[in-house]
Design a protein around this nucleic acid. Sequence first.
DNA 1: CGATATTTTTCTTGTTATGAGAATAATTGA
DNA 2: TCAATTATTCTCATAACAAGAAAAATATCG
Lengths: 386, 386
Amino acid sequence: MSKSYIRHFNANAIFHRIRIEPNVSQRDIVARTGIDKSVVSSIINQFSELGLVERNPVATSNKPGRPMEGLTISPESGLIVGVQIEADTIGYVAAALDGIPLCSRAQAFDGKLDGVADLVGRGVKEIVGECGRAGDTLGVGISLPGLLTDEGMLLHAPVLGWRGVPVVDMFSEALDAPVFAGNDGKAAAMAEYMFGECIDIKDFIYLFSGSGVGGALFLDGDIYRGASGLAGELGHIKVVPQGRYCSCGASGCLSPYLSEPGLAEEIGRLTGNRPTSFKDIMERADAKDEVVVGVLDNAGAVLGSAISSLVNIFNPPLVCLGGDMASAEPYLRPAVERALQRLAHPSMSVQTKVIFSQLSTVSPFLGGVALALDGVTGLDSPHVLP
Amino acid sequence: MSKSYIRHFNANAIFHRIRIEPNVSQRDIVARTGIDKSVVSSIINQFSELGLVERNPVATSNKPGRPMEGLTISPESGLIVGVQIEADTIGYVAAALDGIPLCSRAQAFDGKLDGVADLVGRGVKEIVGECGRAGDTLGVGISLPGLLTDEGMLLHAPVLGWRGVPVVDMFSEALDAPVFAGNDGKAAAMAEYMFGECIDIKDFIYLFSGSGVGGALFLDGDIYRGASGLAGELGHIKVVPQGRYCSCGASGCLSPYLSEPGLAEEIGRLTGNRPTSFKDIMERADAKDEVVVGVLDNAGAVLGSAISSLVNIFNPPLVCLGGDMASAEPYLRPAVERALQRLAHPSMSVQTKVIFSQLSTVSPFLGGVALALDGVTGLDSPHVLP
DNA sequence: CGATATTTTTCTTGTTATGAGAATAATTGA
DNA sequence: TCAATTATTCTCATAACAAGAAAAATATCG
């Protein structure tokens, strides 16, 4: 373990503190992180000189003594851009250093590898121009639906059909800013930790649904990647013995019961009228289509069973559900709760809160912002979250 | 993050290297750990001065240049004692610093909290005398069937009926050596990592059976304890919807299908002749008692289902099965393999090896040794593995 | 047999972090 | 205005890593 790592670690912890609790004092940072006051002072100075952190006078406290300085992330100091590459679209969001999104857009994408670097290069330039904010682009985070190595190589992205692409190098050439790449599910979980419902929760399990079901294990304050980077692919937890076939080739996975295509197919099979989008599904449910409500209830039961297993294994304080399923909360939650009641270890489930997070629908593409922010704060070279 | 932590971390890594690969050179330690050569040299010197590590001349290599020095853990340098407290017995083992057990014994125990510190104090003194080896007792590790806090407080041990016992303080008073306490399942997993089948494997899932079923998650080179220390209680994974009742109050847990009492009860129910011990069960199985073989096969299927879930969640390179069930490998493995084939994600299960480890039956009570060794190596004060 | 090349380990020197405590700065209340 | 109080910065000591030179120990070649 190197010496610079500990500075990096402490810098990250302090930045995180300031971001989640604007206007903290150095004294409180010391109290909450346990880092020595000299070290906090020194790191704050460094951030301050770089213009990343501002010192604000704080309203009088009616207490004797030197008043504290409120510390905030300086919003003017630079931009972070998040890019999310999916099968048919590429999403962009520009955000200030505090993670607050300034503007976002999405463009159609044919999924072709050829020319994607230039495409993203132009897209990033445009979104930066569009938000009309001065300041350097401090980092670009790219969220990808596939498995990445520590060295920034995309090993395999099934929905894109890409294999063995050195994404960090490729996008770095086109981008003129530090590039940070990562798996979409893990990036989304980081976004929940940094900006969302899981803010500052050191241990939680994240699940999201969309065209598939993904997830991440957030353990001891960091994403757990596992020996081969596949850990946390929670869409493939087995939930129904000899159940539906999954695109992965196995049967009984969670994914075909909860993903948009899986739900649509089941509804189509039962009604002869296949929904065209998740929004379509929700509209039918809101119109009290009993078949749709029933399919969603069943999905909730299956989801609840998967969550029960996770609760019994991790005893997490929080399970966070994001993506499409967050908007289906009214239809899913009852079944999820029933399953938890029935299947999870009582002494464990009492400690676990299950929440539906709208973060990814309200502010899409923040996964990339989380990736980049995590990298930028440590003041070191581009790296990867596989 | 403190400065001393990084020395501790590096010291531990280097010691571990020497233990698992006796006669390594400093050069190879540098190559394998990435720690700088100066640092390795400095830490080796420190270990050498303390008498913990020896430098051995190595047989000529027929290569030019200064020959390497082989480094080994000095077995004479001191003793580690492992203590394992169970419902009806207390086990002791004395081991050299390299973890090799010198002698062990067990004594009957009435489970009463009163006087247990003195009892263990005498027991440790006796085992140290018995093994007839000079040298200080460098550490005593105590493995307990319950949940512990970071501060060395045993919160709750159901099988002992103990609650809120400050075990580290209590045993420290009676023991005249640094005391390290920890949960039995987690300690056993550490023993597998340090001395057993999982040696040097940074990510694995550990399951063991005995009077109950426990386990541990070994992730990124360390036990994952979770927010409340309950993580890894794998005996309570739900495997059979509306299944057998578990002592924890829930139903469908793994534990009643795989633990000795669970198996005995089922065999007793089917044959009218309840086995009195796990050995008894094994003898009947070896005598081709078809009911017993069938019950074990069913246990294997249930176990396989639990392992499948774990594989899909963690994608671990290794799943290690210990305790009683290790001796039942011939009767369990076929069903486990069948379940894995059927339930686990194919692209994940191909990366996972499932092994049965005899470590805890061949050399019992090593969990405590692992606890103590882990603490002693870092050269710091007594602590706890909750 | 001696010189040289080679390999491993240690030493020297430099840089950077943390950590403890003194000093300074900025405020309130008497 | 002066003490009391509180927050932050500064100073100095200590410890750790890091890079490279130096030393130690051996094999091989002439």
